[in-house]
Design a protein around this nucleic acid. Structure first.
Lengths: 348, 348
DNA sequence: ACGCCGGATGTTATCGATCACATAATGGTG
DNA sequence: CACCATTATGTGATCGATAACATCCGGCGT
């Protein structure tokens, strides 16, 4: 807890370029140049500066630099507010990548919707200069951010929309593997519990699901849209069960799957005996549920890191082009919640 | 994605105190004083400044202020790195509180242990001035942070150790309610799956559990320590089952409980028929598991917010004293995973 | 030899705020 | 009404970096 030792050795203000310069016997500007582009200095000078920096354990004052250059070293991470969904692992990945690139990542929970949210965002942005923003929340007014501050904004997952549009592989593509898996088990009618459609990931999974069902010559057992929570999954499954012609449910994430399984259980249906359920995300707990969850494993850290990479690339057009973001480490994990379709076509 | 409209209206540099001053017909220093303590200005002057600020939509440049005053407006939030545990909701609460107080919260994942971690922390700290740090990770070298930078550090949950030491109510106190609940159901021997003991919360729950068992005249059915994950809970439960004299397991969080239930299931034991299981945290999914989880509901946002409040209080000794942190909104939630003890004392 | 060019380095101004000190306005007193 | 203690306001310096411009220097063409 908050101790502040009184016997502090020294305030020990950090060294400045002037001190480095004096020690190295050069001008402060030379030191500045050393940092900007040492190749412009004579080897001998460069070395003197280097030694002085090392001796003083110099590190530049980002505040001062930022004041002068107007460049910002802070990035904004927008995460959902009170929603049970939280992209924690993606955030971790993103934070690590940002840090590595010398940026600071400011996390802000965006709650609510509409004007309130807009106002909140505006206030945050005016609180200080941000170099860019990475949003884990679908922002309708992407425009807003840009209109207000004209900073690059990357919405995690949105690239997928573009890729799918181009017919390229998208994050949702594992949905196809799920459908194939269920088809192989003899399921003919599959239902889908989709995530909120303002989320790119939810749109993708739904779109790929629809296409895969069509391509495989299966029938659509119904689609229910729900928020990213077990409670919503429960309700959605109950809605689907009003017209239970399916033998499998593909849920857009593991929480939804958990809610769906519970709903089936409450109706006296067994999983996977009567209905198979497949989730998405492979939460660490999913392997230990009863039944354990067939799901899609995702490397969420990598995804967060990749989204951040995109943002960094946008900030620094000179640098390496961002690694083409793509579905990283996605794979279908078969577990107990999916099994052969029952002989008699039917639930209920 | 990253659009940057070319038809940008204007760079529209933000107004400075000089512009405000000119518009108000006063000196820049007067404007500065207005912000620092407007009561020192004559009412008429104050009003002129106020109007000018409003007209120009002025907001101070924190970078410049920070350079001059050496004050920092950034706080550090340390979160676990690759661990499956992530205090997302606490982080949200903390972030919101920090924002409200005008601070920026920089999130950093602290991975690994020992020297690597220390080095990483050192590098982060020297990357810029931080006003304080809030750690959701137990940091052994709390000293480190302070030695290096002498900033206030609050480790979330640590106040509990102190409070328990003082015989005051602590975060772990609901453990007593759990034991009482199980005792009322006829359980005489309870086992505990404890969290990693470097975490204050884990220590608290274990300590209160031990005391409650003793006070209630029950027997300790064994304690196994585990990381905060379902997998670890599974292993811990298996270890406990080597000597299965208990009829109930109290797990230090919901993930551990999930793992334990799975382990019991794999041994052919029913929950709660043969063994009752109680978790802690009340994850949103826990109500939908089969069986649904008896657990302790926590207002994690409030806890995060309260931890941040402590930090803010430490930063600003003049301000209001931090609200005495305490177990907020904790309550035992009874669900299916706990039930009457089996007639025959025994598992197996 | 001269002048000119370009690369390496030095000097001074600047970013936008606060600090330290100087000065002007105010007000109470004898 | 002069005087001094306060209070209110203005002026110039400063935080630590980069930008802009000036200067120095060696080599090369004519």
């Amino acid at each position: 807890m908050t101790q502040t030792p009184a016997d502090a050795p020294q305030p020990a203000r950090a060294a400045t370029i002037y001190e480095v310069a004096r020690l190295a016997g050069v001008s402060h500007q030379t030191v500045s140049r050393y940092m900007a582009d040492r190749s412009k200095l004579k080897a001998a000078t460069s070395e003197k500066v280097e030694r002085a920096m090392a001796e003083l354990n110099y590190s530049p004052n980002l505040t001062a630099r930022s004041l002068r250059t107007r460049a910002a070293y802070r990035l904004l991470a927008l995460v959902p507010g009170s929603s049970p969904y939280f992209p924690s692992r993606m955030l971790n990945g993103a934070a690590a990548t940002a840090q590595e690139a010398g940026y600071h990542l400011d996390v802000v929970a965006l709650e609510g919707t509409g004007p309130d949210r807009t106002e909140r965002l505006r206030r945050i942005l005016e609180g200080g200069p941000f170099a860019g923003a990475l949003s884990f929340v679908p922002i309708s007014g992407t425009d807003l951010l840009q209109a207000q501050e004209r900073i690059p904004v990357v919405v995690a997952g949105e690239y997928d929309d573009k890729m799918r549009g181009q017919g390229r592989i998208s994050e949702g593509s594992a949905a196809q593997a799920i459908v194939a898996h269920l088809a192989a088990l003899g399921h003919r009618r599959i239902a889908h519990i989709a995530g909120p459609q303002e989320w790119p990931a939810a749109r993708n999974r739904l779109a790929v699901y629809r296409k895969a069902v069509r391509d495989a010559g299966l029938e659509d057992g119904g689609v229910a849209e729900a928020q990213w929570s077990a409670a919503a999954g429960y309700d959605a499954a109950r809605a689907l069960l009003a017209n239970p012609s399916f033998t499998a449910i593909f849920a857009a994430n593991d929480q939804l799957a958990i809610g769906a399984i519970r709903a089936l259980h409450d109706q006296g249906l067994r999983v996977p005996g009567d209905v198979s359920v497949v989730g998405w995300d492979d939460h660490p707990e999913s392997a230990f549920l009863v039944p354990s969850l067939t799901t899609v494993h995702m490397d969420l850290e990598a995804q967060g890191s990749s989204a951040m990479g995109q943002l960094l690339a946008a900030l620094n057009p000179g640098g390496m082009p961002a690694a083409e973001p793509g579905p990283t480490g996605m794979r279908l994990v078969l577990r107990e919640s999916s099994g052969p379709a029952p002989n008699q076509g039917q639930a209920d």
